[in-house]
């Protein structure tokens, strides 16, 4: 079996200084390469909190998170940023894109941040991704001039631009109408296969979950069930 991309060992997360509330209780989890996983569970069960930890956007209260076999516990904020830029892509439910920039610039942004300035080939790479998600004709549109579904598709292109092995998506279709939501999900599945990228997608949609390789169900800060879909 392939080496896991991410390993969580006994991860807990508490919030508050006066009144400390533990939100995640001892999570153990492995995410494998190219795996398309759905994370489901009632609201408030800790899905976003878990995703933030996986994305190194937040630090666990206890336990370890290993990324590509490497312990991330002792990393400084900048090292975590660097790892994030290299190994992880994000698609969020809200505020998908930077409103000041065009679709093309938004897709280029992770490359610009990583390299410090525009280099040869970046523009072409971003354009080819926009082509792939069917929005090449909108490349020079301001982000705010795109529909919700279009914005979310651009966000998918942006998450993929540095070819990360894992993309984390927190309710990427939550804010979209059914039709746009379906389109975005189809896109995620397609790019996951084509780019051999692992996805961890938080969703409330049963039908979407049913079409994933693996379904993790969270309840009250614990992983209640972890099923692999036979069909996939």
């Amino acid at each position: 079996m392939a080496e896991p991309l991410v390993v969580l060992e006994g991860v807990t997360k508490s919030f508050g200084t006066e009144v400390v509330t533990e939100i995640l209780h001892g999570i153990d989890l492995e995410v494998l390469p190219s795996e398309f996983t759905a994370l489901v569970g009632p609201s408030g069960s800790g899905k976003s909190t878990l995703l933030n930890l996986l994305g190194l956007l937040d630090r666990p209260t206890s336990g370890r998170i290993l990324l590509a076999g490497r312990d991330t516990t002792g990393l400084t904020d900048d090292e975590r940023s660097a790892v994030r830029g290299r190994s992880l892509g994000f698609v969020f439910q809200f505020h998908h894109l930077l409103p000041e920039f065009t679709a093309l610039e938004n897709v280029m942004m992770p490359m610009l941040a990583a390299r410090g300035r525009e280099e040869k080939g970046m523009r072409e790479r971003a354009l080819s991704l926009l082509e792939e998600i069917g929005l090449a004709d909108r490349a020079l549109y301001k982000a705010t001039k795109l529909s919700g579904g279009q914005q979310q598709r651009v966000a998918v292109a942006r998450a993929l631009v540095l070819e990360p092995p894992l993309v984390l998506a927190d309710e990427p279709t939550g804010n979209l109408d059914t039709e746009s939501g379906k389109q975005v999900f189809e896109l995620l599945r397609k790019v996951s296969t084509e780019h051999r990228t692992a996805f961890l997608v938080v969703t409330h949609d049963e039908r979407i979950a049913a079409r994933c390789d693996r379904i993790l169900t969270m309840v009250d800060g614990r992983i209640r069930s972890d099923e692999r879909n036979a069909r996939a």
Partner: peptide, 16 residues
Amino acid sequence: SREIGILKAMGTRTVQ
């Protein structure tokens, strides 16, 4: 602050 958060999530370093 949202934009800054997005930039950071995309790998922008503190000094940047």
